[in-house]
């Protein structure tokens, strides 16, 4: 059986990397019975994912729940706690366990016509700017691109103006001064060529992007699988999931750091202690406020705490983490009824 796999991202992107790995894992786990063809973003792009899964254009796809905010109001609450993110792997596995165990989230995926099989996470976002940001005062009046509500709240709290902008426009907007910077992954230095326009990186830990659904599997495809096939498939997905985090949270940030250090036009700023303390205090208050609003948010916060301890113990090796996650999460799931 050959499955159509849609990472909705081009070659160098972490999602595409993860899908290439997944295709290999799928063959391994199924003994060659299941294979995958990875489709390029010219066939299925992120906004087209829902229709692609529902109409059979793709069997498995990288669907971003925040992109389909109306379809995933409950799953999306995990994104409201973005400022919690300090350990990429912990955020990813917390998101995975959250998606698997939260009943309203499962309903949302069913309604979406798909099955949730795990998540991944970015590295911890930082400030990438054209003006130096050394202290809280330097943030006053800066116009910063924001990738989501928590980052907008952070910026506003410190007197900066969050700007909504398609991520592909960041390069142009920064080079022309329409914005002063972005709250983003350091990987954007390479993947959106910010290394050509940025002047400063301020290492204030902001949070992660972790509301992902890596191997969103079309319900039709899932229903056609036998229990044995499902087990093999989930094993492959479970090994594939941390590959996104490994790539996006570790390998690529290391490359980007090296490129930034090699570039004499970019200064890396370690912010002063007051700034760091103020930022951490705001993040804690923001997370506490959101967790008080919604019991699901509180559940997610608890899972983050759980997985931070596990990652502390196991380390950052993807395969070791996948093995542990199998015991912690998937071994407890009845794949006969899962997603139905």
């Amino acid at each position: 059986q050959n499955l159509l796999l849609a990472p909705a991202a081009p070659g160098p992107h972490p999602a595409n990397y993860m899908y290439q790995q997944f295709a290999t894992f799928l063959e391994e786990e199924s003994g060659g019975a299941m294979t995958g063809t990875v489709l390029g973003p010219e066939v299925v792009s992120l906004p087209q994912m829902k229709d692609a899964l529902q109409t059979g254009l793709a069997n498995v796809g990288n669907a971003l729940p925040l992109y389909f905010a109306a379809d995933f109001p409950q799953t999306g609450v995990a994104g409201d706690l973005a400022l919690l993110g300090r350990s990429p792997h912990a955020m990813a596995w917390a998101m995975t366990e959250f998606g698997v165990t939260c009943a309203p989230c499962q309903d949302e995926f069913k309604e979406f016509g798909a099955v949730f099989l795990g998540a991944g996470s970015s590295d911890v976002y930082v400030l990438i700017t054209t003006k130096p940001v050394r202290s809280v005062d330097d943030l006053q009046g800066l116009r910063l691109r924001s990738g989501g509500a928590p980052y907008s709240r952070w910026a506003e709290n410190f007197g900066a103006t969050p700007v909504n902008l398609p991520v592909g426009d960041t390069f142009e907007a920064m080079s022309q001064g329409t914005i002063d910077g972005t709250m983003a992954s350091i990987v954007d230095m390479l993947s959106y060529r910010l290394v050509d326009v940025a002047k400063y990186v301020t290492d204030v830990p902001l949070g992660t992007y972790h509301v992902t659904s890596n191997f969103t599997t079309a319900l039709d495809t899932w229903n056609d699988m036998s229990l044995e096939q499902r087990t093999q498939f989930v094993k492959a997905a479970n090994r594939g999931d941390p590959q996104l985090t490994d790539r996006w949270g570790f390998q690529l940030p290391a490359e980007a750091r090296a490129a930034v250090e090699a570039n004499s036009d970019i200064e890396v700023i370690t912010p002063d202690a007051d700034f760091l303390a103020a930022s951490e205090a705001f993040a804690a208050a923001d997370v506490a406020a959101k967790a008080a609003e919604n019991p699901l948010s509180a559940d997610f916060a608890a899972l983050v705490e759980k997985w931070e301890a596990i990652v502390e113990e196991v380390g950052n090796d993807p395969e070791a983490l996948a093995a542990r996650a199998w015991d912690e999460i998937w071994a407890k799931v009845d794949l006969e009824t899962y997603g139905q």
Binding site: A69, S146, A149
Partner: peptide, 15 residues
């Protein structure tokens, strides 16, 4: 579904 986009802290219905 009531499709919407999230813009900063604001949800805009676009269906």
């Amino acid at each position: 579904v009531g499709t919407l986009v999230e813009i900063a802290d604001y949800k805009m219905a676009v269906w």
